[in-house]
């Protein structure tokens, strides 16, 4: 279940190499785990960015994902690809983070100003920033799980069974979460436009 990442590493290890690295990492081989980190850090970081937004705490979450991955390694049975195993953990970390963020005042910042294409004319950059801010505002109003399901479906184009697998839910539940997010989008879109 590969999730498209923003970058394709030219030196990405093959599936067989990854399996070998996993086998060594399970036995406590630090170098093997470091190699796994190098192979997957970019993908996990990109997925985290999509799931929680361009927030300053992504590096902390990246650390959290790999620490949990390290602790979960003994339970890895090879039924799914390493990346899928890792992405399940990433989704879990993102859900925990989003729930915590809703419970406490948000002191972090989203870098909408960083996302505009600097080569674009000023007018266009303003529109780009406005669109990103609008989209992030919409996502921030969603509960954690509908938000994650919506992003996995609409941004990463995963099928409902894939979403269900990553979120540890039933396919029908995944479908309903995406539908709930769509309904929220339909309801919130006019409000967000008015609030600008």
């Amino acid at each position: 279940m590969p999730i498209a990442t923003a970058r394709v590493s030219p030196t990405a290890p093959s599936a067989a190499e990854l399996e070998a690295l996993i086998a060594r990492a399970v036995t406590g081989d630090g170098q093997a785990f470091a190699a796994l980190y190098r192979a997957h850090a970019d993908g996990v970081h990109a997925l985290l960015t999509r799931l929680v937004g361009p927030r300053s705490e992504r590096e902390d979450l990246l650390q959290d994902v790999f620490v949990r991955f390290h602790r979960a390694l003994p339970t890895y049975r090879g039924e799914a690809a390493v990346s899928t195993f890792l992405h399940r953990i990433t989704v879990r970390v993102a859900i925990d983070h989003l729930r915590a963020r809703r419970r406490r005042p948000d002191t972090s910042s989203a870098f909408a100003e960083d996302v505009a294409d600097l080569a674009a004319p000023a007018d266009q950059r303003l529109v780009q920033r406005a669109e990103v801010e609008q989209a992030l505002a919409f996502l921030d109003r969603l509960e954690a799980k509908p938000r994650i399901a919506f992003i996995l479906r609409e941004v990463l184009d995963l099928s409902y069974p894939e979403i269900a697998h990553l979120m540890g839910s039933f396919t029908t539940t995944a479908r309903m979460r995406v539908a709930a997010a769509h309904r929220a989008l339909a309801q919130l879109a006019p409000d967000l436009r008015r609030s600008r």
Binding site: R7, E154, R193
Partner: peptide
Amino acid sequence: MSAAPNALNAESVRHAVDATVSPLSDIAR
């Protein structure tokens, strides 16, 4: 200035979310 965002829909959210993805810097990694 006529800068106004397009209507918010699934496609615009997709573009916006994808636009937020930036490479992990070597220092951060």
